[in-house]
Simulated scan of single mutants.
Amino acid sequence: MASHKSKKRKGNDHGGNENGPIDTSKPSAVFVPSSGRTHTLSIALPGSIIANAVTPEQKTALAGQIARACAVFCVDEVVVFNDGQALIRPPERDGYTAFADPNYFLYHVLTFLETPPHLRRALFPMHADLKLAGALPSLDMPHHLRSDEWCPYREAVAVRQTESKDGVRGTLLDCGLSDRVSVPVQLDDHTRVTVKLGEQSVASSTKPMVGEAVSPDAPREEAGYYWGYSVRQASSLGAVFTEAPYDGGYDVSLGTSERGVPVQTIVQPGNEDYVAPTWQHLLIVLGGVAGLEAALTADQELKKAGVTEAKDLFDAWVNLVPSQGSRTIRTEEALWIGLANTRSLVEARNFGP
């Protein structure tokens, strides 16, 4: 078997040299990890935005726009919440959910797109929700590795359990490499797992490479890789907070509204509302057509708790586009704008104290 000595992940080589021009015909921006990070960026948005798209093609394309924004701006978690603005009913006869349960449809497509292409066939049975997803633009995230690229970490799927002559049990994995990879733990078939291979592991003609099954957060926390986003559903706006996967929840949350303060007040140092680069888990929440106020109205638990204004749920209530020219800004547009306008907060946290 090949030793992968020539399969190191390519650096940020723009194709130019001292004797020739830079080749701009091919993508050249490759994510380069620095040091490990434990802080995360999350976004939350309602699945009801899918209900506002008319055709299956438009609904799938909308999910693709959201996934692309998350990939470009290194979002670690996506929360799809029910804001009570879309009628939920059983799926259609073929299982298609975009018209029946837009929250699940968005969750389903986002999860599919985040999954590395070489794993999708094993992890996702044929489904009507995903019929058009294969035509969406690629996310091309750092864990969407080509077979000739080397990385100390990889996403894999369990192929079958094994047992050596010495009685050592393990699992054979498909990591998207030409060589087999084995981990010394038993996993159910078709289980997705993050594998740490170390530096230039080598397989022989009789034995596969040996890896280590690690947490999906390990590439980010240990080495600083952006390793895609997780997706979860929340039954309400309040559940976005109460079901947070992090100890202590989100320490900084931003609600977005045209009735909020200009976003510049939280991103520019020196302002009273500036968000200092000391947060651990940052959450940006966007509303649907009717805004976050409608999501609060539909949330009986928050109303019972005495919450009367949506802005009271957040550390900051911000307007992403002050003096907007259009009467409305669509959620998928607000996502791109919001992530771009708050990028300085993330960069300050990445490279700050």
Rank of each mutant, 00 (worst) to 15 (best):
L177S: 01
W336P: 02
G11N: 06
V231Y: 04
V252K: 01
L87N: 11
V75L: 08
V193W: 03
D13Y: 12
G64F: 09
V307A: 11
S35T: 14
P245D: 00
L339Q: 07
L254P: 01
L292D: 08
G20H: 14
V202I: 15
E212Q: 10
I49Q: 11
I337Q: 03
W317K: 12
Y226N: 04
R120N: 05
L254S: 01
D247L: 10
Y246A: 00
V289L: 15
K7Y: 11
T115E: 08
S323P: 05
T24Y: 14
L286K: 05
L296S: 09
Q233S: 11
T194V: 13
N82T: 03
R220P: 03
R180Y: 13
T191A: 11
P90I: 06
T342R: 00
S178Y: 11
G198D: 02
R93D: 15
L302T: 13
E333T: 15
A122R: 15
A295W: 13
I50P: 09
I66G: 01
A71T: 03
A203Q: 00
T242L: 01
S147G: 02
D299F: 13
A239N: 01
Y246R: 04
Q161T: 14
N82S: 07
T194A: 08
A295P: 10
V75F: 04
A295K: 11
D101P: 05
R180N: 11
A63K: 04
Y274C: 00
Y250R: 01
S138Y: 05
S235W: 00
G325L: 12
N52P: 03
M209I: 14
L283D: 00
F351D: 04
G134H: 14
V80K: 03
A133Y: 06
L119K: 07
T342V: 07
S257W: 00
G36D: 06
V267Y: 02
E258L: 03
T60K: 08
A133G: 09
G249A: 02
G176R: 08
D189P: 07
N17V: 03
L110H: 04
S28F: 15
T194C: 15
Y153D: 10
G325W: 13
V109C: 06
L145A: 11
R154K: 08
S201M: 12
V285K: 01
N271K: 06
D188F: 06
S182H: 12
V202Y: 02
Y225W: 15
V210Q: 13
Q264K: 05
R89G: 05
T191F: 03
H108V: 07
A223R: 14
I266L: 01
P262W: 01
L197N: 04
A234Q: 04
S235I: 05
E272M: 03
N350T: 06
A239P: 00
V289F: 13
R232M: 07
K303I: 15
P33C: 05
P152V: 12
R232F: 02
K303T: 14
V289Y: 12
A213T: 03
G287M: 06
K304S: 13
V193P: 02
D148G: 03
V80R: 07
T256G: 00
Q233W: 00
A67Q: 08
R120C: 04
L296E: 13
H118Y: 14
G36C: 09
E332S: 09
Q161V: 05
S48K: 08
A63L: 06
A2V: 10
P184A: 09
